[in-house]
Design a protein around this nucleic acid. Structure first.
Length: 280
DNA sequence: AAGATCAGCAACCGCCTGACC
DNA sequence: TGGTCAGGCGGTTGCTGATCT
């Protein structure tokens, strides 16, 4: 078997299992006061009978103050699915693009979803062959609707959505390119990324607004909080893969900031585009 | 009401990688 | 250059509460 971590060796008598509130408090207050220099030394310094790896995991997945927690929004769910298509099981990379979510959280979410999908697939294939599914299960409304939806082929042509106010703002300011690199970070520093399309770098609140609005079916009033950039040529056309590839390639780009209007049509269009591109 | 099943979540395990000696 | 170690990651397991039968 694999090599056992020295910090996890039996002789150290480390505790395992769920963390108690007292342990959480000790770890959190220690990191708050001294920060993290060496995980392996933290258990001793914080007075914990845990191995360093366990402390790190607890901090990264649960105690970190910037964690969002709570259920995934539809928006986040769509992003995860799209990112998984692009990046595979690189949970840490996916998590890096979803602010406030840990890789473990995303992985768990995905595995739960995947398990469900596989079950549903098995059920549907066996039911088409034998059609002996229990009536109760058959009567569940749209049991497979979600899976079917996501397996739809992407449209052959993607027209990037540019909100009118964004296009107007770009036109009014005379912006002819994605030139606000300071706000967009390295994403716009990538020449391939600066080709076209509009990105609204919204704050987290706008993200939540959009998610909430998408659920309620109400189109939110968009607010420009940082910067906008518009297509160089046509506000509603001719966007190439470079733009989106750059998003995938650049871990500093937060997908939670990608502008999504409450309009389900546009939302779906963007996601369909994502799902139709392999980013190999 | 009780047992079975499911879903969500937390945590562990084993492997890989890079830094250091 | 090879060995050791710590950190990080993905896969997996096990627990718990909710829901179903």
């Amino acid at each position: 078997m694999g090599r056992v971590h020295p910090c996890c060796s039996e002789e150290k008598k480390v505790r395992k299992g769920l963390w108690s509130p007292e342990e959480d408090e000790r770890l959190a207050s220690h990191i708050a006061r001294f920060g993290v220099s060496c995980w392996s030394s933290i258990p001793e310094l914080a007075g914990l009978q845990r191995c360093g790896k366990s402390c790190r995991l607890r901090w990264m997945n649960y105690l970190r103050p910037d964690l969002k927690r709570g259920r995934f929004s539809q928006h986040e769910e769509d992003l995860i699915i799209s990112l998984h298509k692009a990046l595979g099981n690189s949970w840490s990379q996916i998590a890096a693009r979803l602010p406030g979510r840990s890789d473990n959280e995303i992985k768990n979410f995905w595995n739960a979803r995947l398990r469900k999908k596989l079950r549903q697939k098995e059920a549907s294939t066996s039911s088409t062959a034998v059609s002996k599914e229990p009536a109760a299960r058959r009567n569940q409304p749209n049991a497979n609707a979600e899976v079917d939806d996501r397996s739809k082929p992407a449209p052959s042509v993607f027209t990037p959505f540019v909100p009118d106010h964004v296009a107007a703002a770009a036109g009014a300011s005379g912006a002819s390119s994605c030139d606000d690199s300071s706000a967009a970070g390295s994403f716009f520093a990538d020449p391939a990324a600066a080709t076209c399309a509009a990105v609204h770098l919204a704050d987290g609140a706008a993200d939540d607004r959009n998610a909430a609005a998408a659920e309620s079916g109400v189109t939110p009033t968009p607010s420009l909080t940082t910067s906008t950039s518009a297509c160089t040529d046509d506000a509603r056309g001719s966007c190439d893969d470079g733009f989106f590839r750059a998003m995938v390639d650049d871990p500093s780009f937060l997908f939670g900031d990608f502008y999504l209007d409450g309009d389900a049509g546009h939302h779906g269009q963007i996601m369909s585009f994502w799902e139709g591109h392999a980013f190999s």
